[in-house]
Simulated scan of single mutants.
Amino acid sequence: MPEVIFPGPEGRLEGRYHPQKDRDAPIAIVLHPHPQFGGTMNNKVVYNLHYAFYNMGFTVLRFNFRGVGRSQGEYDQGVGELSDAASALDYLQSLNANSKHCWVAGFSFGAWIGMQLLMRRPEITGFISASPPANMYDFSFLAPCPSSGLIVNGTADRVAPPADTLALVNKLKEQRGITITHEQIEGAGHFFEDAHLDTLVGTVTSYVKRRLTETSR
């Protein structure tokens, strides 16, 4: 999988780009957890989500937010990181102009950034939010949430408690025109340790495949 360097708002951004042979393949970007707590594009959850999308026929890009790895700049409280994500999507779209489906997946802090990107970019047709930190960040900008998607969390998550995630899901489910699917993985912590990671990948894969089947009818 080729390493790529592409322009971001504060200099270069480092990523991993995994194209399909099909020029019409759907595209997805995957966003990593908090840069100040060890989050990188090589996080296990991010890595596994990347390959889950690739194995479903997506052309996929994951990348390091500013100040992480070889990406230039420094942490910017989520504001700059949202701009980084927008630049990553621009880059991915520039290489895949024929793609008809665009997804964003994020884990933890990356889920928060991904949901904000969703609000900015109407071309995004689906999202995956894994362990969204609804207790730490304000998600009220999702009014209304513009796209259907999957929110998945563990029942033993001590970083982002399930009760806060459920409150977010219930709030989003009140909105019309979209469908928020919520899956809880029994016994899983914030990072979907051990066998829970396979369960996460299976959950995401079955959801995305179902969505793709529905849109192709």
Score class of each variant (00 low, 15 high):
I185L: 15
E186I: 12
F141L: 12
L31R: 03
A195T: 07
I185S: 05
E74D: 11
A143V: 09
K173V: 01
S129F: 01
A143D: 14
R66Y: 09
I180N: 02
N153W: 12
R66D: 05
F53R: 04
G154C: 07
E14K: 10
K100F: 08
I178E: 05
D84E: 01
F191Q: 13
T199H: 04
D84F: 00
E174R: 14
P35V: 11
I113M: 11
K21S: 13
S108R: 02
P35M: 12
G189R: 04
S216D: 14
H190A: 03
Q77H: 12
A156E: 10
T205R: 09
Y137M: 11
E81L: 01
E174Y: 10
T125A: 11
V208M: 01
T199I: 03
A86V: 05
I128M: 01
E81A: 03
K21L: 12
G38W: 06
L197D: 01
Q184A: 15
H18T: 10
P7M: 04
H196G: 05
Q116K: 15
G80T: 00
V68I: 06
C145I: 08
D76Q: 12
D164C: 15
A85M: 01
T205C: 03
Q72H: 10
K44I: 15
Q116R: 15
H50I: 06
E3D: 15
G189N: 13
N42I: 05
G8S: 06
F65H: 07
S83N: 06
V45F: 13
Y207I: 02
D138Q: 09
G202Q: 00
R121V: 02
M119F: 04
R12D: 12
G78F: 00
Y207A: 03
A188T: 09
L13T: 03
S129C: 08
Y207P: 00
V159T: 13
R62M: 05
F53Y: 13
S108P: 09
V169Y: 09
T179R: 14
L150H: 05
P9R: 07
A143W: 10
G187L: 12
V201L: 01
A85L: 00
D90Q: 08
T213I: 11
L172R: 01
A28K: 01
F63W: 08
V159D: 10
V46I: 11
S71T: 08
G39Q: 05
E183Q: 15
H32F: 03
P132M: 08
I29F: 02
Y137V: 04
R121G: 00
E214H: 15
L168Y: 04
A195S: 07
Q77D: 10
G187F: 14
Y137C: 12
M1I: 11
H32T: 06
F65L: 05
